[in-house]
Design a protein around this nucleic acid. Structure first.
Length: 480
RNA sequence: GGCCCCAUCGUCUAACGGUUAGGACAUCGGCCUCUCACGUCGGUAAUACGGGUUCAAAUCCCGUUGGGGUCACCA
């Protein structure tokens, strides 16, 4: 059996949507698992909305996710070009073939003309209005030289079109319900359904996997394959990814639900690529009770048979949990290197080779959901001047506590072994000598050293900060 | 509205005719503890409804209800 050829065919009208990323991922997983070929094709026929900038953003996002393609932009391939606007001649050739074979026809009716016809109908019937077969039965003799026309597909009037989706199972449609849709615009540019079919056909795509919003297009496309005398590919549709309230995920809804839409946003917020892949993989797909997957495990375990057909709602907390789990699995060194670029955003300048970077990062690793959170949590280590949280000052920096902070500063000044353990031992000895419980000094010290009431462990904070800074901050908070 | 699709804890899901309906996130409680996390132990929580088929139904069939998709010279 031949190896599958799958594709991801985004239209460059914005960013890489989280749902599209899943479509790309599932196709990629299938290709990698089966040793097949993953094709990237840019569907830029919507000239009003397609931009080069968007093409770049989408390609960058795919690179960032690590979803590499075997054929497509940048890498080329035997079936190129991989931008639809560079394939116009091909579409014209196939369209003309359909016309000459009587499977499609020129339609000179204008949009206005058709709309006027629709308006003539009683209001109730306007909803289900389909193109009346104005030009369906005309011949070449009726063509109007020089006038603009579109090419419409001559949809069979009877019969049903059926296909077995790898996710949804059997789906059938009455052909009589499908109108004679336009395949080539008056400017010669193909419409989605036709461009996709000609490309999938000429690129040898054997399995078309895409979002379930395309289920409705599938019968039309199958009809075109048949009219072209070509073998129909397999189909696999994936359920929609929705907001927590069931609405569509969009830039606009993002603020409302906290659901990031664009893959660049995930990168900017400090997700690691594998966590994003893990996140989207679990929408509509599962492997028993397993929740966390590495990229390799995804490739190994992915199968269409385990894909469900239920639309999924985004769970922000679970998403953050997945991100955090992936962060925890990074080595300390890797984690530190990845969090470094985010420190600037948290307002501190830290050199990549700053010796405090690794130990500081280590203390926030299990406390952060994303790198941006980690950077924010560890910024206090690097500030020249920290701002103390007023409420915390009010609550913990009492005169008595300040006296203890001064004493603690003195203790630290004398600690020989300035490590976690050494510091802990010295402070605990001091505490024992005074008969204090650590609870009486921990929170005031934490506020003095970090500015806040929540932080990594006290001893590790002090160790990372170093003797000089720790002592200075304790004394400053004590009012010296 | 027509057509298509979907329906198990709040959310994501497991189950592929026979289970005390399992797991994860969230939530609640305990442990750990210098705070916050992490970790750990335990609890609450679901087969939308109504009919069939069957010895047996979350699983198969029909209907109802609810949700989504789609009805362009967008993709």
């Amino acid at each position: 059996m031949d190896k599958p050829r799958v594709r991801f065919a985004p239209s460059p009208t914005g960013y890489l949507h989280i749902g599209s990323a899943r479509t790309a991922l599932f196709n990629w997983l299938w290709a990698r698992k089966t040793g097949g070929t993953f094709v990237l094709r840019i569907e830029d026929t919507d000239q009003g909305r397609s931009t080069e900038a968007s093409t770049k953003v989408i390609i960058d996002s795919l690179h960032w996710l690590g979803l590499d393609w075997d054929e497509g932009p940048e890498v080329g391939g035997p079936h190129g070009p991989y931008f639809q606007m560079q394939r116009l001649d091909l579409y014209a050739e196939y369209a003309n073939r359909l016309v000459s074979e009587g499977r499609a026809y020129r339609c000179y009716a204008t949009r206005e003309e058709i709309e006027a016809l629709r308006q003539k109908l009683p209001e109730k019937k306007r909803d289900g209005f389909v193109y009346p077969h104005l030009w369906r039965d005309k011949t070449e003799a009726d063509w109007i030289p020089g006038a603009p026309y579109v090419i419409r597909f001559k949809t069979p009037l009877t019969g049903t079109t059926e296909f077995v989706d790898r996710v949804y199972g059997a789906i059938k449609t009455q052909n009589s319900l499908i109108d004679d849709f336009v395949i080539i615009r008056s400017d010669g540019v193909p419409l989605y359904n036709f461009g996709a079919v000609v490309d999938d056909l000429t690129m040898g795509i054997t399995l078309v996997a895409r979002g379930s919003d395309h289920i409705i297009n599938t019968p039309k496309q199958i009809l075109m394959y048949q009219a072209l005398g070509a073998a129909v590919p397999e189909y696999a549709h994936m359920p929609m990814m929705l907001n927590p309230d069931g609405s569509k995920i969009s830039k606009r809804s993002s603020g409302q639900h906290g659901v990031d839409v664009a893959i660049e946003d995930y990168r900017l917020r400090g997700w690691v690529p594998d966590a994003v892949l893990n996140l989207v993989a679990r929408f509509g797909w599962s492997a028993g009770d397993q929740e966390l997957f590495t990229r390799a495990e995804l490739v190994e375990k992915f199968d269409w048979a385990q894909c469900g057909s239920v639309d999924g709602r985004f769970n922000v907390k679970k998403a953050l949990w997945i991100s955090g789990e992936h962060l925890k699995r990074l080595t300390d060194e890797d984690f530190a290197a990845r969090v470094h670029p985010f420190l600037a955003g948290a307002g501190v300048t830290v050199a990549a080779d700053d010796p405090r970077l690794l130990p500081a990062a280590r203390t926030v690793k299990t406390r952060s959901a994303r790198l941006i959170d980690a950077a924010e949590a560890m910024a206090f280590y690097f500030r020249d001047e920290i701002t103390l949280d007023p409420a915390a000052v009010e609550k913990f920096l009492t005169p008595e506590a300040k006296a203890n902070l001064r004493a603690m500063a003195d203790v630290l000044t004398g600690v020989a072994d300035f490590s976690d353990a050494g510091i802990g031992a010295a402070i605990e000895a001091w505490l024992a000598e005074r008969g204090f419980d650590i609870k009486t000094v921990a929170q005031p010290a934490r506020v003095a050293l970090t500015g806040r009431t929540a932080s990594p462990g006290l001893y590790e904070v002090i160790a990372v900060l170093g003797r000089e800074v720790s002592v200075r901050r304790l004394r400053a908070a004590a009012g010296e």
